[in-house]
Design a binder for these strands. Sequence first.
DNA 1: CTGAAAGCGCTTACAG
DNA 2: CTGAAAGCGCTTACAG
Lengths: 333, 333
Amino acid sequence: MTIKDIARESGYAISTVSRALNNHPDVSEETKRRIAQIVAEKGFVPNSNARRLKRQQGKSIAFIVKGAGNMFFADMLVELERLVGEAGFDSVVRYLNESDDEVAHARQLCTELKPRGLIFLGGDSRNFQQGFDQINVPSVLTTTVNSELNFPNLSMVGVDDRAAGQLAIEYLLAKGHRDIVVMGSDHSAIGPCQMRLEGCIQALSAHGIAFTGDMFLQSSFTMDSAYAAMQSYLKNGGKATAVFAMSDAMAIGAIRALLDAGLSVPQDVSVIGFDGTPLARYYSPRLTTLCQPAQQIAKTSVKLLLGCILKGQPPKTVLLQAKLEPGSSVRAI
Amino acid sequence: MTIKDIARESGYAISTVSRALNNHPDVSEETKRRIAQIVAEKGFVPNSNARRLKRQQGKSIAFIVKGAGNMFFADMLVELERLVGEAGFDSVVRYLNESDDEVAHARQLCTELKPRGLIFLGGDSRNFQQGFDQINVPSVLTTTVNSELNFPNLSMVGVDDRAAGQLAIEYLLAKGHRDIVVMGSDHSAIGPCQMRLEGCIQALSAHGIAFTGDMFLQSSFTMDSAYAAMQSYLKNGGKATAVFAMSDAMAIGAIRALLDAGLSVPQDVSVIGFDGTPLARYYSPRLTTLCQPAQQIAKTSVKLLLGCILKGQPPKTVLLQAKLEPGSSVRAI
DNA sequence: CTGAAAGCGCTTACAG
DNA sequence: CTGAAAGCGCTTACAG
């Protein structure tokens, strides 16, 4: 079943059928209607390979996701796909490990798929600095903004990570905690973790507490990894009264390790997460967390991307604020 | 940069370049090497649209997922994508609502994308009975097996849902519970819920307990929906001492509702989940759950699918057993 | 082992 | 408003 069959069936030429299918302005309504009817009758769907070959570009947006197990990204992704779908784009998703080079993968994807746009969920600025200049489709780096990144086709949408890190620590300080530990991924990578950590350090030093290396627990953004990190911290005699984990998944992994060590949360140790995933509200204890405005991030990301693709608008950087959502995983001491 | 450029650059004809690119047997090693070198040098990647248009089929496997928020499916999907990726296939994912007709969507996807195979995560037998005969690519219905489904291109891999339902109830009965409530999605749909419920009813009646409609709480496979279902059950004076929820997400939603009503788990109410997602181990209380062998299901599904696609093997039905994983969300009374 | 040529199913100037 | 024709970048019989 091809456009040829529809042409024969309807009595119109192939080109007219094509135009009708694409809702081209200069086809009479009558013709459009008759062709639409036959198309519906036969259940015809245009071959997207042929279409893309001609158009020399797909109708797709590619998503590059760093960390397949990242709950926050997973939730975001569903929303993002819904939004681009509404705008008539297909979406293709590529999952990467946290350590993979997302920009190199994106370059490959571009030559392969010719997507109209790219959305990165998570990313390391160093990779962008090194290779993003070879990418020329409109892109948005979502959930991270780094002011050092400056490309004519890259928008950024995310929360103010430094302010959020500061907020987390100030909250714990206000609750009387002095012995605080921060859990994040590799902070030498220039990304949200580094920014959040900077905020932490700033807040701590404003209260006369010097940040030292043993106050940082390294973990990837998974429950398993956080569990292991917290377990080894405790084994080494760690005695913090509060933990700031840079994702809800990390927080949950850490809490499990605390519970398994016979400690309770928040009686013995307070824990604050990051992201504000639905799970934070459902976990027990209900997680105190820095809530990222996921809906707004998703909506803004898609809006900016479509603006670039469809209207040639310049890229933009949108910085949103994370909001502290109190749960019951932190207590005052 | 097209195959034409490579042809000019290398001095070979387009057709030879194409054959070299596809590692066709009757191209001399020497030629292959020289062409490979130029391809690497130029960073040439064949246009997959043109390729697919010619071949009249993609190199992709399509995944149809019912329920974007289903944690179990999400974890499965990552593993499935990894496996088909290793075998050299692309994967494309389509998320559907629980109420959508997955077979109708699959049909559309087939004409659009010409995938080599289909993997359904979740599915309603009625939809298959009605429309699957129009799908002719090798497919597997994963996480559900229904003996009434019989198609020459449909494999099924999943746990014995009836036995699993029985197991859950027998466990609760053995712990002394008599007042048990079952939470699942629409059980008039012919699917895993119905099968599990049948197992439940069988186990109950073997112990002299008649199953009545008020012992079933309907909910979709999300935390939110389970929360609402449990909340309204409690509001109506529900007094069960144990809940069997047909997914871990449901169990977590139900637990939150119990906690919010001032009840504690498992002291006041015991809860048993289903799936054995990683979260079950991390939740507190650690969830008692019927663990599906996700790795094995994924591996088997991909093996069967590739067998059908690559070697023309007939479809198979593989029934695995769920295993009760004790946590601390159930107590003996 | 290699080349010239047809054709996959569309879209889109160009003509009318 | 509609049609005839070229061509997107590949693959693959067919011929040599």
